[in-house]
Write a protein that binds this DNA or RNA. Structure first.
Lengths: 333, 333
DNA sequence: CTGAAAGCGCTTACAG
DNA sequence: CTGAAAGCGCTTACAG
């Protein structure tokens, strides 16, 4: 069943059938109804490939994530897909991992699939070495690029991100206000976004007259074996009384490591996470975290995308504030 | 840049260019090289739409998940995407939610996008009411359907699943062997797959001479507010000494509820999860769980899919065994 | 308001 | 081993 069949059965030309399908141009109400009836009777669906061939679009958006198993990234994919379908778009998903080469390959793959736009989830795509971001600029030459939780200034690249510096600042401030004197910052990777959080951490420390430098930025791998050793070293090194963690998972693991070392949370040690995921809720004690409003971010991205694809304006940069969610891990009375 | 440009620049017909691109038919080595050089010099990529139009395929697979935010489902998506790209396929992702109507819509959406096959993640797609599975049968008329953790007998539907009955049986047996006398089974939904786990639970109980009936099957909603009340009721009702939970998340929450009621895990109450996710590892005490080998399942599914799309044989049903991972939540000495 | 016709960029029998 | 040509199923100026 194709447009010719519909044309024959309804006694009009294929041009007219096309017009009623796409609601384009003028079609007499009578004609439209006649055609619609035939279409419905046959539950006809236009062939996407043919349509794509003439319009150069299949209404498909490429979503790139370094790791969909990460709760935060999965959440973003969820919200993005949710929004995209409202506008008739379909999501093509790529999990790239952290290797630059793989990221490039996936961008090319999606380009070859002729997606209408690209959405990158997470700061993991913005490389520390500025030159390594060329692949993003390259991508933006073909299609609009949306960067979630990342910031890059370039034509056709749109960045939408939570103000993580302020977020981390507030989490740190809460601990300091409750009496912590010696906080430390823990991340699993050294990225642009982590550095921004660390800036917030430093700012709060400065404000409370606590001297901290780059040595307070710790990168602990996610490998479970080396992790134990890392924490042993950390706790031996100094009696830290607050762990500002770059995400909830790190916080949960850190909290457990502390307990294994006989350190009580929050009595001896306060712990904060980031992203406000289920892990923060489920952990015990439940972990104070920062809700960075992933849903808002994703909704904005998809809205922006429809605007840009419509040839309308959209700000190149959107930064919005997150929200602290206090829980037991920082409750000290 | 299209196939005509390549044809002109290399001085051969478009038919020959097409043959070298697709490695089809006979092409003289000399000709092939000449054409390849031109293709690479221009970094030419065939237009997918045109290709799709003539071959009726874009090498795209539809993946359906009810909820990508669920750790287990996210994990499956990860492994599936990983495998699919090895074979040159791209993943189109749909998050359907639990409503039957939405599931149907998404199946149609993917059909309209002309995907080559459909992969359904999780038993959430196999409805309890047999009639409601018609949409799956319908889908299988157009493309091969792969059902992960679900079982449905129908032409062009391939089921791949872990033996959850035995899995739940073994988890229950561990608790009983360690002295539990009064276990109860907790799920968040009443699905086909949950029922299979429950059968395993009952089997273990019978074997240990413990009488249990349908009243031992509890469905607790995921809504945090009603949840607290549910657990209060549960713990008031009887001094259960083992909670066999249908997944790790439920187990983690149950464990916390127990602690809030002054019940110690594992001393007073043993707890088991399912899926062996990070949550089981991170929880404290760490939770005994069942590794249902999601990666194996996904690898099999993608392999099966390539076989079927190649016109080869693949078993309609594959059931494999899971693996118990014992942790602190059942450690009683 | 409607239709004839060109064009989108491939693949694939078929002929040679 | 290679090429001419039909065909895939749409959209969209253009003419009327």
């Amino acid at each position: 069943m194709n447009i010719y069949d519909i044309s024959k059965q309804s006694g009009v030309s294929i041009a007219t059938v096309s017009r009623v399908i796409n609601n384009s141009g003028y079609v007499a109400e009578k004609t439209r109804k006649k055609v619609m009836d035939v279409i419905e009777a046959n539950s006809y669906m236009p062939n996407v490939f043919a349509k794509g061939m003439s319009t150069s679009s299949m209404k498909t958006i490429g979503i790139l994530t370094t790791n969909i198993r990460d709760l935060y990234q999965a959440q973003c994919v969820y919200y993005l897909e949710q929004e995209l379908k409202k506008y008739g778009y379909t999501a093509m998903l790529c999990c790239t991992g952290d290797e630059l080469a793989a990221k490039k390959e996936h961008v090319e793959l999606l380009a070859s699939r002729k997606v209408d736009a690209l959405i990158f989830i997470g700061s993991h795509f913005v490389e520390k070495n500025a030159k390594d971001n060329a692949y993003l600029y390259g991508a933006s030459n073909n299609v609009p690029v949306f960067l979630l939780n990342g910031l890059l200034r370039h034509d056709n690249i749109y960045s939408i991100l939570c103000d993580d510096e302020t977020g981390a600042y507030e989490l740190t401030r809460i601990c300091l206000e409750k009496g912590a004197k010696d906080p430390v910052f823990i991340a699993s990777r050294d990225t642009f976004s982590m550095r921004r959080k660390f800036q917030g951490f430093l700012k709060a420390c400065r404000q409370y007259g606590i001297e901290k430098d780059d040595s307070a930025f710790r990168v602990f791998s996610e490998d479970p074996e080396s992790l134990d050793a890392s924490y042993t070293l950390l706790f031996d090194e100094s009696a830290y009384d607050a762990l500002i963690c770059a995400d909830d998972e790190i916080a949960a693991v850190a909290q457990r490591a502390a307990r294994n070392h006989g350190i009580r949370v929050p009595e001896d040690l306060m712990v904060t996470g980031y992203n406000d995921s289920v892990i923060a809720t489920i952990a015990s004690p439940a972990i104070t975290s920062l809700d960075n409003r992933a849903q808002y971010m994703c909704t904005q991205a998809v809205y922006g995308l429809t605007q840009v694809l419509d040839g309308k304006e959209f700000p190149e940069e959107t930064m919005y504030s997150g929200k602290v969610v206090e829980r037991e891990s920082t409750k000290r009375t």
